[in-house]
Amino acid sequence: MADRTSLAVRDLAVEFRSEQGVVRALDGVSFDLHAGRTLGVVGESGCGKSVTARSILRIVDRPGRITAGRMILDPGTPREVDLAQLDPESKEMRGVRGGRVGLIFQEPMTALSVHYTVGNQIMEAVLQHADISKAEAQNRAIELLREVGIPRPETRISAYPFELSGGLRQRVGIAMALAGDPEIVIADEPTTALDVTTQAQILSLLRRLQEEKNIALMLITHDMGVIAEMADEVAVMYLGRVVEFAPVEEVFSEPRHPYTRALLRAVPSILATPRQRLSTIGGAVPHPGARPSGCPFHPRCSEQLGALCTEQSPRPVPPGRSGAACFKVDQSEAVTA
């Protein structure tokens, strides 16, 4: 790929240890983010997509802890740094968080304080990552609000978050994420709480900003429609692993992993015929604390190969390549090779 790699995540593992036992939230996750491209991360609840985002920003909740792996920011450049090795409280990590890496939340109110005006909050974010005067920071805040399509930004900077609609609040959330002039933006379900026409506006805003600023976007969602609309590459996650990685067209036209196939068939479609039934995946996602042996998907898999799948763990997809972590796929590829 010609695009510059902004972040290389390798073999990332995160565990939550408690009296009830150890929960492996991430189990060897690898992927790359590229400047100007969007990686869509998709999966059901508990698959680890949000923990991945929080790990990159080093804001995993206690008692969660990174037990293995690397997260190399700007690999091969003088600015290269392994985020997994940094102290979450360190000055360097604080420069990354909200600076080199911006974060957009599902509910923008999580990112915004109710006590301060949106202008104050954006200014604070700007001042944290740039050595400029307050007046300059205010101008920058107005500029950012204009960039994210907020009408009359000069007056809106004195508004409190509760005075804004959900759509406008998410635009402010995006302005906050952009305040540190990031090269990577992680958006965790950025449109899930929004109405459908607002969602369409926010997605097209994200697309425009990404193109203008050549941002590497990591878009986390459970919505296959949003993935189809936005992603260049897709990582499908299940129980803390990337089970399939491929360009977006391939994921939809020729999904490799049985889970991806089942998931796509289960999605209700705006193009459905009347009373059309959906294919279902039997059972539910197991609790990450009760991870099945072998391939974590085998108890729900309609294509499993017996002992191989129940006892051994399939090889993860090598980063930078398309593929699926599945013995069945391995076998069919061995035949065609």
Binding site: M224, A228, I270
Partner: peptide
Amino acid sequence: AVPAPDPSRRGRRRVA
């Protein structure tokens, strides 16, 4: 406004 689960339809919609 509804994103269809089909990347080939991308960018074809008008946003209100």
